[in-house]
Design a binder for these strands. Structure first.
Length: 468
RNA sequence: GCUCCCUUCGUCUAGAGGCCUAGGACGGAGCCCUCUCAAGGCUUAAACACCGGUUCGAAUCCGGUAGGGAGCGCCA
């Protein structure tokens, strides 16, 4: 039997970290077993579903490079099929029309709550034989009233529910549209889903779905309920706390491989291993290693992983992404400086590509003012001589390269009888405008002879004219 | 309220009755390296929610307590 999993988001918002993790586990499980991964858009709630959200889900999945083998399927395009199955259930006596008004339902509910009971439909229309005129009925599933339904969850183990805890849920609304618990069953059945991997919040729905499968004479799929993901503060994930679109991570300068690697370790582990290639994730992924308890997102760890992938990633590929970020902060990197070289120079001091872009600004455009603290310390009358000396020696270099520049710096240091820092730091502030940059020889090489000398001259002139 | 689920360092986690003086990772602290910032190396503090039971022996099994979460829609 080939394994078939599905990711079935409802398009009522963007794809966030929790959804992405669910999708990842479904995708990994399918890949691991050489099965199929199906994407299904659960858009039966026409009020809240939007095409923008559908697109956002596609974008997020594409960015994270999780491709579906089948789909995307849209439930709104399968209404005929749901009607057919509802009819089947009705004919077999597994479902019935319910004419209760919302007011009536509300009253039942209030009474139950007053009696400290769990609110549920009391099944009063089960035995109704005549329609109520002028009322468009809903269709309810006739849930077994006795016995138990057991969910053999691959993560939780055996979970037993009393059938009398489950009420007769509505499967078709009065406007003839199907509801979630019904469409899921029909789809999982039709799409031959073998493993339903989804969020913990669906565990309570599972016995109802199993009962519908049973009524249809079908075998339910296997289930695996994943623990929730919490915000950094341990509170429920909300828009204020980490529940941002995965595409926001791109904008913030994260690499998809970092996000994926971060996500895979949320609720799953393979011994002590932290860094996984895609191939390793696929090879090692196993539901038995999925945790039961909820986990909080840790932004620092994501940052660490992101930097790891920046440091170890292909500079040429990263260069393209850096270009995108530079453009976003208004820099058009069309000059002679190769982005891949900037990536190499900045990788170990950038946790995100956004940081890298910002820290690399001075490579691509002139700065207006010196960082006051850095200039205060390094562009002074005391450093003037060393700056001048360095400038003269630099100008005499034959081949403008980091090793040659490095030799010049060392010669200058020897000639002046000072430490390297005394020479390098003023140069750094002169050419970058601030106190932070990649190693000075590399920085100068990247900047080029013309730009480096010009900025050195500018700094020397600035000091001579009284530092203003 | 009712039903169901969960509980190891601050966080992610290892741990399948003796391998546990509870391991790794992020973050923290300290040291080293160093032209800045980093990166890197080394060291270090830090947890089995609680109470009972089973057992020669429990983080691991059982029961209870506490705390947290989810569900209880003509939402998904």
């Amino acid at each position: 039997m080939t394994i078939r999993t599905r990711f079935a988001p409802s398009p009522t918002g963007y794809l966030h970290i929790g959804g992405a993790r669910t999708a990842l586990f479904c995708w990994l499980y399918a890949r691991h077993h050489r099965g199929q991964f199906i994407l299904r858009i659960e858009d039966t709630d026409r009020e809240r579903s939007t095409s923008e959200a559908v697109q956002a889900i596609f974008d997020g999945m594409a960015w994270l490079d999780m491709r579906e083998d089948e789909g995307p399927f849209f439930q709104t395009q399968r209404f005929e099929r749901y009607r057919e199955v509802a009819r089947q259930l009705l004919d077999a006596g597994h479902a019935y029309h319910c004419y209760c008004s919302k007011e009536e339902l509300e009253q039942i509910r209030n009474e139950q709550l007053a009696r400290r009971q769990k609110p549920r439909y009391d099944g009063r229309c089960r035995t109704r034989s005549t329609p109520r005129v002028g009322v468009r009925p809903v269709i309810r599933f006739k849930n077994p009233q006795i016995g138990q339904t057991t969910v053999n969850d691959l993560v939780r183990g055996q979970v037993v529910f009393e059938n009398n805890e489950l009420d007769d849920l509505i499967i078709v609304r009065s406007d003839d549209t199907p509801t979630y618990n019904f469409t899921v069953v029909v789809d999982d059945l039709d799409m031959r889903i073998t493993h339903v991997i989804r969020g913990d919040d669906h565990l309570n729905n599972t016995p109802r779905q199993i009962n519908i499968f049973n009524a249809l004479g079908a075998k339910p799929p296997e289930y695996a309920h994943l623990p929730m993901i919490l915000g950094p503060d341990g509170a429920k994930l909300s828009k204020r706390h980490g529940a941002v679109s995965v595409m926001q991570y791109r904008e913030d300068g994260y690499l998809p491989e970092a996000v994926i690697n971060y996500l895979v370790r949320l609720g799953w582990s393979h011994g002590d291993q932290e860094i996984f290639t895609r191939e390793e994730m696929i090879r090692f992924f196993n539901i038995a290693d999925v945790n039961k308890s909820a986990s909080a997102v840790n932004p620092d760890k994501l940052l660490w992983l992101n930097q790891h992938y920046i440091k170890t990633g292909d500079p040429d590929r990263l260069a393209a992404e850096l270009g995108w970020h530079l453009t976003r902060i208004g820099i058009t990197a069309t000059g002679a400086i190769k982005l891949a070289a900037v990536v190499r120079a900045q990788a170990e001091r950038s946790r995100t590509l956004k940081e890298m872009a910002e820290a690399s600004r001075f490579f691509f455009e002139e700065f207006t003012d010196y960082d006051s603290k850095a200039a205060e310390k390094n562009l002074t009358f005391e450093t003037l001589a060393s700056l001048h000396e360095t400038r003269v020696r630099l100008a005499a270099i034959g081949e403008w390269s980091a090793p040659a520049i490095h030799r010049v710096l060392e010669d200058t240091v020897a000639a002046l009888g000072v430490k390297l820092g005394k020479v390098a730091q003023p140069v750094r502030v002169a050419v970058s405008g601030g106190g932070v940059s990649p190693p000075i020889d590399i920085t100068l090489e990247l900047l080029g002879r013309e730009c480096s000398l010009r900025r050195l001259d500018r700094a020397i002139g600035w000091i001579e004219k009284g530092r203003c």
